[in-house]
């Protein structure tokens, strides 16, 4: 038999190493890629999973993720906590997240500046929050609660947005900076989201990045976006995760890495998922920028030290 998946050999009681995420390129894990990833000569820097996909009790998903975790560093990306909720967090869901984190010992745990649940309905989308005082207090309290339960800090991702709230009283970067300052959480900078939001909200992505607290960024996300038009016929970008990263986003990434130095960088591709080599090619492109900038960065530090 040649069609038995590699992950079936995984040991369910294995100890994990690689508890930190290296400053390399990683990929969002898709079940259809697992065997190829495990057998590939190219060892990807890390893999990232949506926490909710591993909140079932058992079966193939957990065995496959165990095999991945035995071989690679892992980051866990929550999509269902609804940090921006008006009516408090779902304690049961925080407990589920804790079980995933305790079981797989990820190097990073992230969530979104967004909400997805209202009353009892879960909308399965990352919906925007107004940037006002009341929301800021609420989001900070929620992040503190999650960090308390998990016993570790999380990193919070900047959103892609399509609308603004008239009641907003601060900018997104002010809002996010204040959350990080108050809660001690780290940040996940999604550069595609920056480009999408900047285009949709008519500001320059570099202006946004210059105001973003880059020193708190522990991971970067890159993904592809789709193009639509708004009511007036202007471009409206959609955070679609269904194609390669846009060249404009690569340019921004190069600038950010030049400024920050190497940071763990994830390629997200969640819809119309391609074959593994296509995703790997995107990861290699990020790795190329990380390596190039890493050399410059080290050189720069040495010059600075010598100077």
């Amino acid at each position: 038999m040649t069609d038995i998946p590699t992950w079936r050999d995984g040991n369910a009681n294995a100890d994990f190493t690689d508890r930190t995420i290296p400053a390399r390129a990683g990929a969002g894990l898709k079940p259809s890629h697992i065997d190829q990833i495990l057998q590939d000569d190219y060892r990807i820097g890390f893999l990232e999973v949506h926490a909710e996909n591993y909140m079932g009790d058992g079966g193939a998903p957990h065995r496959a993720l165990t095999a991945i975790r035995q071989n690679f560093p892992l980051s866990v990306h929550g999509v269902g906590l609804s940090i921006g909720s008006e009516k408090g967090l779902d304690e049961e869901h925080i407990a589920r997240l804790k079980r995933v984190v305790d079981r797989y010992e990820p190097g990073l745990v992230s969530e979104h500046l967004a909400w997805s649940t209202h009353d009892t309905s879960y909308y399965n989308d990352l919906l925007p929050v107004p940037y006002d005082r009341a929301t800021l207090d609420r989001v900070c309290a929620h992040i503190e609660r999650v960090q308390d339960v998990l016993g570790r800090t999380i990193i919070l991702e900047n959103p892609s947005t399509y609308v603004q709230f008239e009641q907003s009283s601060m900018s997104e970067t002010e809002f996010i900076s204040e959350i990080a300052r108050r809660t001690g959480c780290g940040l996940l900078l999604d550069i595609n989201n920056v480009f999408v939001s900047a285009t949709n909200q008519k500001y320059r992505p570099l202006t946004y990045l210059s105001q973003f607290p880059l020193e708190k960024v522990e991971e970067i996300h890159l993904a592809g976006h789709a193009t639509d038009i708004d009511d007036e016929g202007d471009p409206l970008l959609i955070d679609a995760h269904d194609r390669p990263v846009d060249d404009e986003v690569w340019k921004l990434y190069d600038i950010v890495i030049g400024q920050m130095g190497p940071v763990p960088t994830l390629i997200e591709w969640d819809n119309d998922v391609p074959e593994w080599p296509v995703l790997r090619r995107e990861a290699l492109r990020a790795e190329g920028i990380l390596e190039k900038r890493s050399a410059n960065y080290l050189l720069g530090s040495r010059h600075a030290a010598a100077g």
Binding site: Y162, V163, Q164, F165, E166, N200, Q201, K202, Y203, D228, I229, D230, D231, E232, D234, L236, I238
Partner: peptide, 15 residues
């Protein structure tokens, strides 16, 4: 809900 510069938000909300 609005767009930038007083733009309408119908298609935006429809996303």
């Amino acid at each position: 809900l609005v767009g930038p510069n007083g733009k309408k938000a119908d298609k935006r909300y429809n996303v």
